[in-house]
Amino acid sequence: MNKKRKSSSLLRLFPFVFLLGMVFLIGNAFITVDYKEGISGWSSIIRLNLAKLKMCKTQFRPPGSETLPRGIVASKSDLEMRPLWGAKRNKKPKQNLLAMAAGIKQKESVNKIVNKFSSSEFVVMLFHYDGSVDEWKEFEWSETAIHISVVNQTKWWFAKRFLHPDIVSAYSYIFLWDEDLGVDNFDARRYVSIIKEEGLEISQPALDPHLSEVHHQHTSRENKSRVHRRTYKVIGRARCNENSTGPPCTGFVEMMAPVFSRAAWRCTWHMIQNDLNHGWGIDFQLGYCAQGDRTKNIGIVDSEYILHLGLPTLGGSAENKTDSGELDQTKSQHSSDKTKPSPISQMSSGRSEVRKQTYAELETFKHRWKNAVKNDECWIDRFRA
């Protein structure tokens, strides 16, 4: 009887145990699915965040702006003037920049140059090396020009400090000119059109060979030519021909009226030495900033040519060259005073010292270039024969 009762009890418990087991199995399946889905969801979130982090790391952010939200970063600037109040005038941004060293005694020459550059297409910046600024107000364009005044500094000193590539990156071409240039046969708009068509990254207007002070024959104007990129003349020891690969035969401009593309100027700016004032030596290395083949990307524009007067304007305030009549008058006023050096002798002495400094800086630059090439193991000279 007892065995029968136990068997009967087990039979009654069996459905309950079976039901409990089914509930356990089904519940475990749901828990496993939820767990897997949870793991999968978290894995997706982690992968998404990692991808986002990787994308953010690959995005370029200007140095110093890493802590700022991307949308607030203004990475470019320009030289446009802004009104102090009222609505901003909607006008087309100027595309190019004319920057010049300027002394007040050459104001007529500077005025003629500036008037050759359209006010709607060029920003004008004057580097005043003689301290005179207000005297330029007689010219209408002076009101919208950028004036920077530091006494007895060259245009290269000014350019290194005030034409940083990030500041002038808004401009397609930078004209970095001297003041002693005749521009009767020059048109800036046509010039820009030509260098764009020719693909010139670094250029200059040709020099009138009959009236200009010409230091390098390569820059002399060639008749019936639009642009030339090389000369075939004998220059010192160099016999220039079709096989010439570098200065002074090709890939070269002088430094009185160079014109740089945006990219070429970024490179050139870095080559200007901060502690050297005159920029001597840079002209022979400009090929490294030509954005490619210097024999093709550097050229002289013959159809838009200029006159280089070669006036010695630095070396002292008395040294800004004036017309011969004024010099003769100054000489006669002091001819009886034997105890004081005349302004002309002071001028000669000042120019002599400036000349010595330019040659000294040339040797310094050449020495630095040689050492830089020697010590940079990763640098490859693309122009080495």
Rank of each mutant, 00 (worst) to 15 (best):
E254L: 01
A290Y: 14
W280V: 06
A238V: 05
T250S: 07
Q273G: 00
G279K: 01
Q291I: 15
G292S: 08
H270S: 06
F260I: 04
R294T: 12
M256H: 10
N243E: 13
H278N: 02
H270Q: 11
I282F: 00
N243W: 14
R239Y: 11
V253E: 04
M271K: 10
A238C: 07
V253F: 12
G251D: 06
A290F: 15
L286E: 04
R262K: 15
G292Y: 15
G287N: 11
R262Q: 14
G251V: 05
V259Y: 04
S244N: 00
S303W: 07
K233H: 14
E254I: 07
G292K: 06
M255D: 09
E242M: 12
T268H: 03
K233N: 11
F260Q: 03
M256R: 08
W280F: 06
H278M: 02
V259D: 05
D275H: 04
N274L: 01
G299L: 07
E242V: 14
T295D: 10
C289A: 07
C289W: 08
V301S: 08
I235Q: 10
M256K: 04
D302H: 09
W280G: 05
N241Q: 08
Q285F: 15
A257F: 04
G236V: 03
W269M: 01
N297V: 11
G246L: 11
D302R: 06
K233A: 13
L276T: 01
I282Y: 00
D293V: 13
Q291G: 05
R294A: 10
L276C: 00
C249K: 12
P247N: 05
G287V: 12
N297Q: 13
H278E: 00
I298W: 13
K233P: 06
T295N: 13
S261V: 10
G299A: 10
P247M: 05
G287D: 10
L286K: 04
D302A: 03
I282T: 01
M271G: 02
F252G: 06
G292D: 12
L276Q: 01
N274Y: 00
S244K: 07
G251L: 07
S303C: 15
V253D: 08
R262A: 13
S261C: 10
D283P: 01
R262G: 09
D283R: 10
M271C: 10
N277I: 02
C240E: 06
C249Q: 04
T268G: 03
T295M: 08
G251P: 11
V253S: 05
I235D: 09
G251N: 09
L286C: 06
K296H: 11
R294K: 13
Q291T: 11
S244D: 09
A264V: 11
T245Y: 13
A263N: 13
G251T: 12
N243Q: 07
T245S: 13
P258S: 12
P247S: 08
E304T: 12
G287Q: 09
T250E: 02
R237T: 02
R239H: 07
S303R: 12
W265C: 08
N243V: 04
D302Q: 08
F252D: 02
Q291N: 13
N241A: 01
N297D: 00
W265I: 10
A257C: 13
E254W: 06
V253W: 10
T295I: 09
R239D: 04
G281N: 03
S303H: 06
A290I: 11
C249S: 09
T295L: 08
V259M: 04
R239P: 02
K296Q: 15
